[in-house]
Nucleic acid binder design. Sequence first.
DNA 1: GTCTATAGCTGGATAGAC
DNA 2: GTCTATCCAGCTATAGAC
Lengths: 202, 202
Amino acid sequence: MSNLQDWKGARREAARAAIVAAAWDAVGEVGLSGLSIRDLAKRAGITTPTIYAYFSSKNDVYDAMFLQAAEDFERHMTAPASDPAPERALVEGARRFMEFCRADAPRYQLLFQRTIPGFEPSADAYAPAVRALEVARNLLASVGISDARSLDLWTALNTGLVDQQIANDPDGERWSSLLEDAVAMFLTHVRPRRSTTRSRNR
Amino acid sequence: MSNLQDWKGARREAARAAIVAAAWDAVGEVGLSGLSIRDLAKRAGITTPTIYAYFSSKNDVYDAMFLQAAEDFERHMTAPASDPAPERALVEGARRFMEFCRADAPRYQLLFQRTIPGFEPSADAYAPAVRALEVARNLLASVGISDARSLDLWTALNTGLVDQQIANDPDGERWSSLLEDAVAMFLTHVRPRRSTTRSRNR
DNA sequence: GTCTATAGCTGGATAGAC
DNA sequence: GTCTATCCAGCTATAGAC
């Protein structure tokens, strides 16, 4: 019996995933806030009421998109670093963030800019994004930075570079090429000096 | 005759301004992309067709809002600095940018985030914003920074702080309190060392 | 210029047959 | 679960009287 329920649940999840995939197609063309249920149904090859068999509302569709985006984000950011040296891993983390955001502008808008009136992601959908921020915290800790202000400065620096890149030079490298330089600037500023006494920052 | 035309033109501009003012009221409540001509007319105390006596389309209303916002931005950023010391003026410029953006979230969204599908500001509306960027360029030049990469890093740092502040702590000071620190970080990193020979950077 | 009235459409969401 | 058919609200924009 459990098998049957699993099977039905999997079918349902597959159908939901197909609709969400069509939704990403749609927002890629008409913009994030231009998503409409009718158009979505057409793209998914079904009819309007069928959408409501899988989602309770349009915002529920947005929420499923948010969840998927947040899971992708977590996966993207938690992949093992290619270089074990902490400083290089930090640069790689910043670059990964840039690349993830640039790869899909509507996804970036949904995840990081709050721009759809009336939509707030559910706690479940939000959770993976929170876990991904933990990655940044750990990366910074590995280079000796653990205070909250420095973490905030780090996120500001990263989102600023991404924001300018996407808004003003979506197909170039004008800001992404500054990334290495920006990380160096950040590290020089916030990293505790190599202390003479071993007990510092303990 | 010219007097009559001026008078009529002024009347027309006043009527347009009143509609734009009502539009700012509206977007403050329903969100930038939630603006509707009907609601706007109601708020302005007129009827729908009258809107079209002053604006050719909904995007034309957005364009007038953009122009006004860009003019306000230019005024806000070009006001004389309270402290003539270049470093202090730079910090003040950054703080002005933060305060201007925080003061009105929909205005920030319209001016700096491109989030309304199908709307692009006209060149006329955009011009004041470009002139305001010149202020940043001049401020940086006054502390000896004139390369394009540093200017880009400066804008990224500023927008990043603002973005995080608005998105994640709209009523607090979590990122705006980092501003002074961030400027110090930036200056240490990009400012040419005080050279022993006077001819450097000449 | 401003109104009433409405065209013409598209939106989210649902009823009920199958 | 999926469909046809549809409700009803909202939208942008316009026609035409005054």
